[in-house]
Design a protein around this nucleic acid. Sequence first.
DNA 1: CTGTATGATTCGGT
DNA 2: ACCGAATCATACAG
Length: 473
Amino acid sequence: MDEQARIMQTLGGVNLSGHPGQGGMTLPPPHGHDGTDVDGRKQDIGDILHQIMTITDQSLDEAQAKNRKHGLNCHRMKPALFSVLCEIKEKTGLSIRGAQEEEPPDPQLMRLDNMLLAEGVAGPEKGGGAAAAAAAAAASGGAAGDNSIEHSDYRAKLTQIRQIYHTELEKYEQACNEFTTHVMNLLREQSRTRPISPKEIERMVNIIHRKFSSIQMQLKQSTCEAVMILRSRFLDARRKRRNFSKQATEILNEYFYSHLSNPYPSEEAKEELAKKCSITVSQGVGTTITVSQVSNWFGNKRIRYKKNIGKFQEEANLYAAKTAVNAAHAVAAAVQNSQTNSPTTPNSGFQMKDEEFQLDSAENKNTLLTNMFTGSSGSYSLPTPNTGDLFMSMQSLSGDSYQGQVGANVQSQVDTLRHVISQTAGYSDGLGGNAMYSPHSLNANGGWQDATTPSSIISPTEGPGSVHSDTSI
DNA sequence: CTGTATGATTCGGT
DNA sequence: ACCGAATCATACAG
């Protein structure tokens, strides 16, 4: 650990020398005793000092294992050296004691702590991990869950930060404790060979703690930064708009135009749409789409569609055709599955191909516009026999026991299909003009009719013959 | 750079 | 709480 080495250095600097500013141990020359053995004694003192110095560089175990400690303690010069060291220490001790260590609580640290506490990063553990997000979601209630769902990503990331923060903090604390005990042991051991008072050990521990707390502060600071970045990113994302992916828009449009009579998706439908959009997104590039975004989209779509239906006519035709094709495919599949002996589905003259339904709106726009609101306010004029057959089969399919196989999907798309079919019929046999894809569901007030069952034409209660346009609802 | 499209937000109404 | 309407702010195409 790099930091540990640095702390070690600090320790050596402060403690061993007694002169904080002075890196090594510099002893004044021993009091002069002239004589020939002076050199020899000098040599001894040098030796013992060297041993003391080097022993600090060794781990406790190592020193013990080598049994140097014993040798050191039993050295004949030891008591003398000890007293010398005590003397030196006494001289320098005042200056050490003079250095007050009263540290006022760092205002910046307090600020960081407060912020972490406010963000819920440093606070009491709320069950931890994903449970915290779940608990938060549950706390906000099922109805208001939208908000928490919207911010679940944020919460998840915050939880991640929190976890990292806590593990790091724990690691630091553990390292700090380990190191403190180690140093204390070392000092206690050394106090036998050189004068170290308990107070000094205490001070040393304080120094270590200060060092580690500065590391902790760094950790807190970077955690705060991470939270800030996360926050700003999420808040910015609210305003900074990103267009939905093409597939997502397609999915939403499909739903919108296939439920044009009542384009108010339920909560479940919204969830499903959001999921669907996000699934397609996950396969390519884009952003995930939340339920509230789906709500936004439908809100915008409704208002904008209503405001300028003409502008959306082309789009409506396109998607109506698309859903019609889908529905037809579904029906065809269902028919193939379940109606092996019935008259074949009327493919003749009604080929389910996309191109068949691509209306050149530039050419037809006038017609479309003039037909707007005017088209077929009365009963639905029966389409060509073939398409009629299709309807018959569809009705029977969705009306009776086959419903489960065909699925609600088809049912919901039948009204769209009907429009398109009538449209094609209009263009193909010249009857056109009475059944264009028109804003049939908009009432005089400009609002959508309260059509609870837009697909009432396939209601099981109605006979197959009672086909009527939902424009007459 | 400008106009349009579009997702998000706000506000009042129910 | 949800909707419509207005509005904001950005993305994007020309």
